[in-house]
Simulated scan of single mutants.
Amino acid sequence: MAVVARPAQKLTVDEVCAELQVARSTFYDWRQKGRGPRCIRLPNGSLRIRRADFENWLMECEDAS
């Protein structure tokens, strides 16, 4: 029996904004300033964020105090 790899979960901008409780404009501001999570741009122009990239970005945002 062949093992089928499950593709990594991809989040929409709306899903990320809902999880962080921030406005879409805030997400795009972070993105423009290079401070947001890594994104994948699809051929139709929409963005997706890998769950793993999002989680790594959140860990990098943690205050080291």
Rank of each mutant, 00 (worst) to 15 (best):
M1E: 11
M1N: 10
M1S: 15
M1F: 08
M1Q: 11
A2P: 14
A2R: 13
A2V: 13
A2D: 12
V3S: 10
V3T: 11
V3Y: 06
V4C: 06
V4R: 12
A5H: 09
A5K: 14
A5P: 04
R6P: 01
R6W: 03
R6L: 14
P7K: 14
A8W: 02
A8S: 13
A8M: 10
Q9Y: 05
Q9M: 12
K10I: 03
L11P: 04
L11V: 05
L11D: 03
L11C: 04
T12D: 05
V13M: 04
V13P: 03
D14Q: 12
D14H: 04
D14N: 11
D14A: 14
E15L: 01
E15R: 03
V16R: 01
V16Y: 02
V16H: 01
C17Y: 05
C17D: 05
C17V: 07
C17G: 07
A18E: 13
E19L: 07
E19S: 09
L20Q: 06
Q21E: 12
Q21M: 05
V22R: 02
V22M: 12
A23T: 04
A23N: 09
R24H: 10
R24N: 08
S25R: 10
S25G: 04
S25V: 07
T26W: 06
T26C: 04
T26A: 09
T26S: 09
T26I: 03
F27Y: 15
Y28N: 05
Y28L: 08
Y28A: 05
D29P: 00
W30T: 01
W30H: 03
W30I: 00
W30D: 03
R31Y: 03
R31D: 11
R31S: 11
Q32F: 03
Q32K: 15
Q32R: 15
G34K: 04
G34V: 03
G34M: 04
G34S: 05
P37C: 06
P37L: 03
P37F: 04
R38E: 11
R38P: 15
R38F: 02
R38W: 01
C39F: 14
R41W: 01
R41C: 09
L42R: 12
L42V: 01
P43T: 09
N44H: 09
N44K: 13
N44L: 08
G45V: 07
G45C: 07
G45F: 07
G45T: 07
S46A: 11
S46V: 09
L47P: 03
L47I: 14
L47W: 05
R48M: 09
I49H: 04
I49S: 03
R51Q: 15
A52K: 13
D53E: 15
D53A: 06
F54P: 00
F54S: 01
F54L: 12
N56A: 15
W57G: 08
W57Q: 10
W57C: 10
M59N: 10
M59H: 10
M59F: 02
E60Q: 15
C61H: 11
C61A: 11
C61R: 15
E62T: 11
E62Y: 07
E62P: 00
D63W: 10
D63E: 14
A64H: 13
S65K: 13
S65N: 12
